[in-house]
Simulated scan of single mutants.
Amino acid sequence: MFRLDRLWRGSRPGEPLNNLHWHEAMARCWPLPALSADERPQLEALAREFLASRAWEGVGGLDPDERLRLAVTVQACLPVLSLGLDWYSDWVTVLLYPSGFVARHVWEDEFGVVHEEEGPLVGEAWERGPLVLSAEDVLTPEPGFSVVVHECAHKLDMRNGDANGQPPLHAEMSPARWKAAFSAAWDRFAEGVEAQADWLPFDAYAAENPGEFFAVASEAFFTDPAPVQQVFPEVYQQMVAFYRQDPLARLTRAGLLP
């Protein structure tokens, strides 16, 4: 059992953000400086709302101070920049460990057999429950990797129930096209992982199941989009349609990609 050492309720929406911590959080996640002049105030408005609407809990003596909360916030708001925070309406708690943690799960399969799993994690998303994160990993995102974006992608996926790689799509999107694009890409990716191929556009963990493929592809989509678009252009276009953002075009316009 973990011990909750500190619980913060977010600041009120109108409260000023600490400029130093805000700029530090924006600079830490390298795609964020590429946001346009219209997108930056949009992100800040979402950030204020996110901070005010979350309960922040620290484990093992961790203090979820504003620096850490803003680091989580800017990365969590990026996937819903064009969607809005209603997409996160089914959860409120952000649970932060100092670093990686060991998670233990007990579950029953369709045949009534009870299974127990235990393993190290840096993030976890519970259906209608908390977002669980390693503070160390929150503070060290890098191109292709963001534990916050990854777990938030799971949260979006879970709005349809299980995290199976197909979040609720917009009315103008085709579920059949989404499934065809992601299924073909996952099959090819899994074959590439087994063959230890050098063309893989993101972490091999994506081969675990379709839900992990969507989450890993999402963090790469936002933080290292060029390889995703090059290797899986159909998947990239489906994510552009779902997230209503084009990170590759954004980074290119900002001069951060050729």
Results as ranks from 00 to 15, higher is better:
Val102Cys: 05
Trp107Asp: 07
His23Met: 10
Val92His: 14
Gln245Thr: 14
Glu172Lys: 13
Leu83Phe: 06
Arg12Ile: 01
Phe182Gln: 04
Pro16Val: 07
Ser36Asn: 06
Val235Glu: 06
Met173Ala: 04
Ser99Cys: 12
Leu4His: 12
Asp63Ile: 09
Gln238Trp: 02
His23Gly: 00
Gly129Lys: 07
Ala52Gly: 15
Glu142Asn: 01
Val193Lys: 10
Val148Ile: 14
Glu142Asp: 02
Val147Ile: 15
Leu121Lys: 14
Ala163Asp: 11
Glu212Ile: 03
Phe232Thr: 03
Glu108Arg: 14
Ala27Gln: 10
Leu68Asn: 10
Ala55Cys: 10
Phe111Pro: 00
His154Asp: 10
Ala25Glu: 07
Pro98Tyr: 05
Pro201Ile: 02
Trp107His: 10
Leu156Gln: 07
Gly144Arg: 11
Leu68Val: 11
Glu127His: 13
Gly14Tyr: 06
Asn164Ser: 08
Gln245Gly: 02
Val228Ala: 09
His115Cys: 03
Arg48Phe: 02
Val193Glu: 11
Phe242Ser: 09
Ala249Asp: 13
Glu208Ser: 14
Tyr88Glu: 04
Arg244Leu: 12
Pro79Arg: 08
Lys179Cys: 08
Arg9Pro: 00
Gly165Arg: 08
Ala181Arg: 10
Asp224Gln: 14
Pro143Phe: 10
Thr223Ala: 03
Glu208Asp: 15
Glu110Asn: 11
Arg6Lys: 13
Arg9Gln: 14
Glu117Arg: 11
Glu234Ala: 15
Cys29Val: 10
Phe182Ala: 03
Arg54Tyr: 01
Ala190Lys: 09
Trp126Leu: 15
Phe50Val: 06
Glu24Tyr: 10
Glu234Arg: 13
Ala249Glu: 15
Gly119Glu: 11
Val113His: 13
Gln166Phe: 04
Leu85Thr: 05
Leu70Glu: 08
Ala135Glu: 07
Pro13Ala: 07
Phe111Val: 01
Trp186Pro: 00
Trp199Val: 03
Ala71His: 15
Glu108Asn: 06
Pro33Leu: 07
Trp56Leu: 12
Val235Met: 03
